Amino acid sequence: MTNGYLLIDGNNIGFAAAATKKLTVGEMEVQAVFGFMRAIRMAVARYPLLKPVVLWDGVSWRKHFYEEYKAGRDAPADTPAAKAQLALRKGYKVQRPLILKGLKHLGVSQLAAMNLEADDLAAILARRYAAQGKKVLMLSGDKDWIQLIQPNVSWFDPQRGELLTLNTLEKKLGYDPAKKRIVVCNGKDEIDGWMGVPSPRAWLEIKALMGDASDEIPGVGGIGEKGAIELLRTYGSVVSFRNQVLDRTIDAAKLPKKLRDFAEQEEKHFIFTRNMTLMDLNSPDIPAPARLKLTAGSLERDDFASFCSELSFKSILTDIDGWCEPFARAA
């Protein structure tokens, strides 16, 4: 009997699995399929009271709002790194239908909307289920999902094995400006890529100031990671900062130039506002789902065994009943 939901970022988990050590059946790569099956089985076994739902990306509304959004992913590859990334994406695209097939055999529900990304679907479902008093765990390596953390909603990064809840978000992470890296507050264990921020909203505003190179979203310019974090820690929010400048609570002339420029130049504020529109998963301006598609399978042990046999997943076949048991409980 489940009492909540496990929301899984399909493409994020699948692409991460595709980037692992190559696994082939004949000439076909299958490491994304194998890695995805292992990741979801591990999560379902670890959280037996949560019903798994895999969320897939549609064609994002963000591309219509801002043409440059993720545009580089469709551009010709002209460097060795870009060519390798393109090859990885193509390899994952070939394997993705097999992931969908395996999930169907395991009885795992899958959800997609024509105009939304998995991030948007996670936001909609997290709010809905949390309002109903249900527990929600979001499974993704995408740190954009951190902004969705709220009472009853937590985030787990399977690649790092890191769990964040509303209670631990503020206490667990802190920023060490001397090292220019994020460290656990005991000052010992370092975690690359994190930002020590006091709230999910602050995390979002920092990203909007900095931009997101992976999505081709430029920042406001002049404010990097350290400056963005210090601004949010000092003033609480960008709105509070600008209001204090406008009502002269803050003497703009005494601000560092990068902050003074941000406070006074409307172009920079426009960029920040645009980035917030692109990044804020709780925005009321996100369109309603169009052509929502739910694939709800049922556990088909024999079909899944045949699926694994075709792909030579021998480690799964060794104990197929035990391997499928967590999915039977989650049904």
Rank of each mutant, 00 (worst) to 15 (best):
F307H: 10
I223D: 04
I271W: 08
P218G: 01
I217H: 05
K314S: 09
D261C: 03
A213F: 03
S306Q: 07
T277D: 10
P284D: 11
W203P: 01
Q265A: 09
T318Q: 11
F272G: 06
E266M: 14
N282Q: 13
L278P: 08
M276F: 14
A296V: 11
I217F: 05
Q265H: 11
A263W: 05
T277R: 14
T318H: 10
R233T: 08
E230L: 02
E205H: 11
K268M: 10
F270A: 14
L204A: 10
D247C: 12
A296R: 06
S298A: 07
N243M: 11
G297F: 03
C308P: 00
P284K: 12
R233C: 08
T273M: 12
S312Q: 09
V245W: 05
M276P: 04
G227F: 11
D319G: 04
P326D: 09
L209K: 00
S240L: 06
L299M: 04
A253S: 15
T234W: 03
F313E: 00
R274L: 15
P326Q: 08
P218C: 06
L259I: 02
A296I: 01
F262P: 02
T249M: 10
R260N: 04
G222R: 09
M210V: 09
E267D: 12
N243G: 04
E230H: 08
V239I: 06
R274M: 15
I271K: 10
I217Q: 06
M210P: 02
D251Y: 09
E300G: 01
L278K: 08
W203S: 04
I316S: 05
L209D: 01
E310A: 13
R291T: 10
D303N: 04
P218I: 11
A296S: 14
I271C: 01
C324Y: 09
A213R: 08
E325L: 14
S240V: 01
E216P: 00
K257D: 15
L278F: 13
T318L: 11
F270Q: 13
K293D: 13
N282H: 09
A263S: 13
L299D: 01
S214L: 13
S298R: 08
D212I: 04
I206R: 01
A263P: 06
I229V: 15
S306C: 00
F241C: 10
S237W: 05
E266R: 12
L299K: 06
I286V: 10
F327G: 07
P284C: 10
L209C: 02
A263G: 12
K207L: 15
D280M: 05
G227M: 09
R248A: 13
S214D: 15
A328Y: 06
L281R: 07
D261M: 03
L294A: 15
D285Y: 07
N275S: 09
E205I: 13
K314P: 01
R301Q: 12
E216S: 15
I320M: 13
A288F: 14
G222T: 01
S309G: 00
E205P: 14
F272C: 07
E325P: 02
L255Y: 08
D280F: 09
F262T: 00
A288G: 10
E267R: 11
N275P: 06
E216N: 15
E310M: 09
R274D: 14
E266W: 10
